[in-house]
């Protein structure tokens, strides 16, 4: 029973991994790519890790997988934030159909 539930979690995670990488290829500019790929790939890999935890239960491997998911949830948003801030400071432009850029306005003033 737990094997089946774990496999379902792993397959969901794989689907979200694939969709995240598809977003990395399809979306038009750096910031949108970062949105899609960071969210979907982090969630997908956490899904794989939770699936491993359900398949193995409270053994060494399951607990380590859960710890790995927690590390990933804590570190992935921070690294995405670092890349986005560095890219904006280095002057990479937004997509030309973007609606507004308040950050650029405030940087120009200060």
């Amino acid at each position: 029973m737990s094997e089946t539930i774990g496999l379902v979690f792993i397959i969901t995670g794989l689907a979200f991994d694939f969709l995240g990488c598809l977003g990395l290829v399809r979306l038009p500019d750096l910031y949108n790519r970062l949105q899609a790929s960071t969210k979907c790939v982090t969630f997908g890999t956490c899904g794989i890790m939770v699936g491993i935890f359900i398949m193995n239960g409270f053994t060494g491997m399951g607990i380590k997988a859960l710890l790995c998911a927690v590390f990933l949830l804590l570190t992935a948003p921070v690294s995405a934030h670092a890349i986005a801030r560095a890219a904006h400071i280095a002057g990479f432009k937004l997509w030309e159909k973007s609606v507004c850029d308040k950050y650029q306005e405030d940087k120009g003033k200060g």
């Binding site: 399809r26 949108n32 949105q35 969210k39 937004l94 973007s98 609606v99 308040k102 950050y103």
Partner: peptide, 24 residues
């Protein structure tokens, strides 16, 4: 979970329905 379904919908849709911008 809501976020991922939302982003997945935007990625697979043929017209890519996005309207990006930076707000404060």
């Amino acid at each position: 979970i809501k976020a991922n379904l939302d982003v997945a919908y935007r990625v697979v849709h043929p017209g890519i329905p996005i309207k990006p911008g930076i707000v404060k």
